[in-house]
Design a protein around this nucleic acid. Structure first.
Length: 429
RNA sequence: GGAGGGGUUCCCGAGUGGUCAAAGGGAGCAGACUGUAAAUCUGCCGGCGAAGCCUACGGAGGUUCAAGUCCUCCCCCCUCCA
């Protein structure tokens, strides 16, 4: 282990937004091995990029010898956290949540080593689902002042729009989690996005009251791009961590399209490269920054999808965009390939088709739709009309241009939407 | 329980009988310019093989040649009062 402790690392990499007690936390992270927890909501079957900051913070914790405790909120998801939301969200069924919780468990294992006490994975449904209402009110509820709760930012925001009682209880349950984990797993630090500040502080208070035990909290900045766009999660194009939902190539492309102003910050947050190397990005000018973006994309893809997937995504980008190899003097710790190896299109999403289907061929717009490059035929038609559709790098001129056997090259047809979205059709007999 | 105000296309938000697939903004997509960035400019932005048709304005009915717009009932949300 290097001279830097977990606190220093999180601090210099930009993970820390707020902490409850600076000195004690520094001391804790520097001189002891502690258990720290973060909750993950199983509201979808996969986590997305928005959860990456918390995940990476746990990765750093583990690397520094602390014990991360990942808590899947199977119980709290039944309630729904109002924090940071302007409206109540759909309440999922128990079954949906269980399925999601399981998937998220698996996903987290890709980042953290859950072996032999190195990290813990729990589901709060295990203790929340069986709580007795009256008992809970008497033991836990009495510790909460409604007046204080209403002052919390997360609730205040909702006072105009309305807040249902079920959501109002969320804070109590999350607080109970912290208390429970502190008591049973000796967890002393809860971390989370900055919107969790109120919930975290409430948990600390509760633990102090019930256990007379001092525990701590830390929050991460809520990431938006420099342009103010939400990270990863847009209604349509969420960037998932699951390779089946967002291919490694798409994932790589997401990162390489990072805005200039975000490159350095993202390298610090989403890769494990040493800060000394990351700081070098400041010296890169204009187009040179693309090398830093390539490293960011490569390293981020490697962490989520593995080395092999990262290399093929990189190779595909090289072949499709003429991405320049990264000079060996930059980011020496990165294992990104430094030379253009054999061109490899394998990372581009592919679709299988049978040769027979191409005998009569498809109108171009049909094909773009069939292959999911366009959500509807109308969209495909517009795309072609606007000159954004390419077959084997040849622009499609009319929407119903026939794409048939003649377009098959080496059993493949390469379709492209705009500059960045590719699909390879593999034609079999 | 009473009174009032609302539910519009991915989001915000106009629209009070035809000219409404529905203003405007945001997001998104494509094009130009570039560095696969940003900014800017342009086009697109419910679906369907053109015209045209179909589906849409919380839900169900009704009035009308014609309804997002009027009427009835219902559901949901908000505010004030109790």
């Amino acid at each position: 282990m290097s001279g830097k402790n977990a606190y220093d690392i999180l601090q210099e990499r930009g993970f820390i937004e707020q902490i409850t007690d600076e000195e004690p936390i520094k001391d804790l992270l520097g001189n002891k091995s502690i258990t720290c927890y973060i909750g993950f909501d199983p509201t979808a079957s996969s986590l997305h990029i928005g959860s990456l900051v918390p995940i990476m913070s746990l990765v750093h914790m583990q690397r520094c010898g602390h014990q991360p405790l990942a808590l899947v909120g199977g119980g709290t998801a039944l309630i729904g956290d109002p924090s940071g939301k302007t409206e109540m969200r759909r309440i999922l069924t128990r079954e949906e949540i269980d399925i999601n919780a399981e998937a998220i468990k698996n996903q987290l294992s890709r980042y953290l080593n859950f072996g032999e006490g190195k990290a813990i994975l729990l589901n709060n449904a295990d203790w929340l689902a069986n709580l007795n209402y009256i008992e809970f009110l008497r033991d836990i509820g009495r510790c909460f002042s409604v007046n204080r709760m209403l002052a919390a930012e997360s609730y205040r925001m909702r006072m105009e729009k309305g807040l249902s009682f079920i959501e109002f209880n969320y804070m109590l349950l999350q607080s109970y989690d912290f208390y429970y984990l502190s008591k049973n797993y000796n967890c002393v630090l809860e971390m989370g996005g900055n919107d969790q500040w109120g919930n975290i502080v409430a948990g600390i208070d509760l633990t102090r009251r019930l256990e007379e035990k001092k525990v701590y909290g830390m929050t991460f900045p809520l990431l938006a791009t420099s342009q103010g766009h939400k990270m990863g999660k847009t209604e349509k194009g969420t960037v998932w961590l699951d390779a089946d939902l967002t291919t490694p190539y798409e994932y790589f492309q997401y990162w390489i399209n990072t805005e200039d102003a975000d490159v350095k910050r993202f390298l610090a947050l989403f890769t494990l490269l040493p800060m000394e190397e990351i700081n070098e990005t400041a010296r890169l000018l204009d187009a040179e920054l693309n090398m830093a973006k390539a490293v960011l994309a490569f390293e981020a893809t490697k962490i989520t999808h593995g080395q092999e997937a990262a290399v093929s995504a990189w190779a595909a980008a090289v072949s499709n965009f003429g991405l320049k190899p990264v000079s060996p003097s930059l980011f020496p710790s990165s294992v990104i390939p430094r030379t253009v190896a054999a061109v490899d299109m394998s990372a581009i999403p592919t679709v299988e088709k049978i040769r027979e289907e191409f005998v009569s061929g498809f109108p171009a717009f049909e094909l773009f739709h069939a292959v999911d490059l366009c959500a509807t035929r109308s969209e495909a038609r517009r795309l072609i009309q606007q000159g954004g559709a390419y077959v084997n790098d040849r622009q499609v001129k009319t929407f119903d241009e026939n794409i048939g056997s003649g377009d098959i090259i080496d059993n493949e047809i390469h379709l492209r939407k705009g500059k960045k979205q590719h699909i390879l059709i593999k034609v079999s007999q």
